[in-house]
Design a protein around this nucleic acid. Structure first.
Lengths: 136, 136
DNA sequence: ATGTATGCAAAACATTTGCACCTGG
DNA sequence: CCAGGTGCAAATGTTTTGCATACAT
């Protein structure tokens, strides 16, 4: 359990916060919107406000417990920060998201930043397209 | 003049559309939000509705005349499609945006997609950070 | 003429905030 | 006990839409 993580972030270990972490851990879709998480909470019979979900996710993101992504312009999605950075392929047909990591791209980004006199805090690489229709 | 481009996109050549293209050409900040463009139009004394700006930008994006980016979660920005694809470095301090292109990264993306059985339609690479404070 | 475009106001979303009440340490 | 957290409703900011009017071809 990582109520310890919540504490480490300087936040009180409350029910909504623990539940939200649990949902992010348990969900097979690793990338969820605030609304997705809210619905999951409601389905579990939890009495949490949507505003709380947003507040908690923002706090978690600031604390580094979760990572926020903007795959499309309409809403943010959140995933648990499992420590290993990665980028994403997003299927425009099914919405499926696959994570990948590439050393060459990572290194090249640093080289480019250095060339431009730029210090990278963070980056976002998203490939939009579609997976072979061998499955769904 | 590229009223021809508007026509090629199957759109009527109207004043708002031409004005919006002009602004995107003329502006020294190559990346503008719908609101930015709307304000620029008003300053020029044009009578254009904000809704029209949104509609036209969406049509232009669909037609490939402009490219839409989501640098932050709060609003989309648009830039003229000048034909050469590039990615972006965004300064978190000043908002400055610098474009770059790297053959190695581009190629590597294709290789990775191929490995994953993924066909790339489009991609977005954004580096967030800050430029050296030698200037502003 | 006539199908498209436009402007305006209203609607639709995603997200944030104010405030009175609740709760964890 | 009491600072911090929560729920609710209202506010905010961005983008979309319905509709009556205006315009390009």
């Amino acid at each position: 359990m990582e109520s310890s993580d919540i504490k480490k972030a300087g936040l009180k270990v409350t029910l909504p916060r623990m539940k939200i972490l649990q949902i992010l851990e348990a969900s097979e879709q690793r990338h969820m919107s605030a609304e997705d998480i809210y619905k999951a909470l409601i389905e579990e019979g939890e009495e949490v406000g949507l505003a709380t979900v947003y507040r908690v996710l923002t706090q978690f993101a600031t604390a580094g417990l979760v990572v926020r992504h903007y795959f499309d312009g309409t809403s943010a999605v959140y995933e648990l920060n499992r420590g290993e950075h990665h980028d994403h392929m997003v299927c425009l047909r099914t919405g499926k998201v696959v994570e990948f990591y590439d050393e060459i791209i990572e290194k090249r980004q640093l080289e480019l930043a250095s060339e431009y006199g730029f210090k990278i805090h963070d980056h976002s690489l998203i490939l939009y397209g579609e997976f072979d229709e061998t499955d769904e």
